[in-house]
Amino acid sequence: MERVRAVKSSMFRIRGREVFGATPPSAVVGEAGWPRVRVYIGEPPEVWGEEARAYDDPRLLWGRGLEEIIKLRSYMAFGYRTSVGPWELGELPLLAVSERPVDVEMRLARDPAPGVRFDLREKPMGPRAPLERVRIDGNPAVPRPLDKLMSDDVKAGEAVVELYRRGVDLYIIQRAFSLGLLGAGHRRRLVPTRWGITAVDVAVGDYLAGRVRDMPEVDGALYGYGEYLDNRYLVAVVPGPLRFFYLERWVYGGRVAEIEVVEDPRGRRSTVDGGFEAARVAVLETLAALGRRGTVSIVRWIGEGYYVSVGNWQIRETLRRIRLKPLDEEYGRYVALVGRDPLALIKQSRRLDEFM
């Protein structure tokens, strides 16, 4: 809490109710009161064009320090409206699924109080206030496949997979799903962002798993290591059926808390966990690119330096950058860093077989 307060003391404070800038794009659907929830549109004041993208795009945020990410996010103002579905929001949903930043003028109903909100799945949110009016100065660039599916009566899960197959950015798909732009017309509703992120990861991951299951096995044991924001990731893949063992190790003051998720070869999970689903998508993308399948174990070690969460995107983006390679002498050093051996976890086949 002391570290959070220290960061908050240096945060930007938005003055006045008029906010001019470009949305990166950025949108968050709240959870309280569902199905009638708040929809937040965010923009950094006086930041325009491509420069605004760095305030929200996970690929541009990745690599920055924790305090820098918090400061960037605290600089963004969020205006919100309350709604049940996209039909009540006018053009706001189109802003959120644009492929490029869009200039927006917002007038807030009151001065936004300084502050930042943290969530395990989503990026931190800066000052917020009700949206009195909004003027869009530009045309949102909605991806063509999404523009078509927004008019079609297709199940949301199927639409998610189709968009991913067509190369639409995963984060645009997540926002489209949360804003109720996908699915059977009569059933479309707003989906809280923290639910939508995991739902899209599950749909895309299951699609990728369906492809990878039929691929040849890896020739031998492979591993990859990555770290970011005092999170360390060690991945091991061995020949065998496609199945996952995921272990999170939270380390604080010499104490360790562990969370585990097991997935059997049929894709049945022992529990639903957003961190696991984000990691699973990234590893499956790597296996699909290699054209190989195997039994996967992932250890995520979380240290005291990660004192607030910036969202599941950092899991996904860090693991996307990991390259799998044959075992070498470095593997033992990485095992020491994360405190558990993924290969040993895989060998605990009795636990996996019990779950099957």
Rank of each mutant, 00 (worst) to 15 (best):
S83D: 08
D56N: 05
V19H: 01
S83A: 15
A54M: 06
I69Q: 07
R53D: 00
S74V: 01
S83Y: 08
S74W: 11
I70A: 15
V84K: 00
V29H: 12
V84M: 10
S83V: 09
T82P: 05
E43M: 15
G21F: 03
G21M: 02
Y40H: 14
G49A: 09
A27M: 11
L61T: 00
W48S: 03
P25G: 09
P58C: 08
P58K: 10
P25I: 03
I70L: 14
I69H: 01
G63P: 02
A22K: 07
E43T: 10
D56Y: 00
Y55A: 07
F78T: 02
R59Y: 04
P35R: 12
G85A: 15
F20Y: 15
G21K: 08
E31P: 09
D56W: 02
V19F: 11
E43F: 06
Y40A: 13
W62I: 11
F20C: 08
L61Y: 03
R59Q: 01
R53P: 01
P35F: 09
M76T: 14
T82A: 07
A32R: 15
E68L: 07
G85F: 08
A27C: 15
G42Y: 05
I70R: 05
K71H: 14
W48D: 07
T82C: 12
M76R: 03
R38S: 15
G33D: 13
I69D: 00
A54F: 01
Y80M: 01
V47M: 04
V39H: 06
A27T: 08
L66G: 06
A54Y: 02
D57W: 07
E67M: 09
Y75A: 15
P44E: 00
P35S: 10
V28E: 07
E67K: 13
R73K: 14
P25V: 04
A32K: 15
Y75H: 07
T82Q: 12
V19K: 02
G49L: 01
A22L: 06
A27L: 10
P58F: 06
L61N: 02
I69N: 01
R64C: 02
S74Q: 13
A54E: 10
T82Y: 08
P44C: 02
W34G: 09
A52F: 02
T82F: 00
Y80N: 03
A52H: 07
V19W: 04
Y40R: 13
V39Q: 13
P35Y: 07
G65Q: 10
G85Y: 02
P35Q: 11
L72R: 13
G30W: 11
V39K: 09
I41M: 11
G30C: 07
E50G: 12
P45G: 02
V37K: 11
Y75T: 11
R73Y: 04
R64Q: 04
G63V: 11
V84F: 14
K71W: 10
E68S: 10
I41T: 13
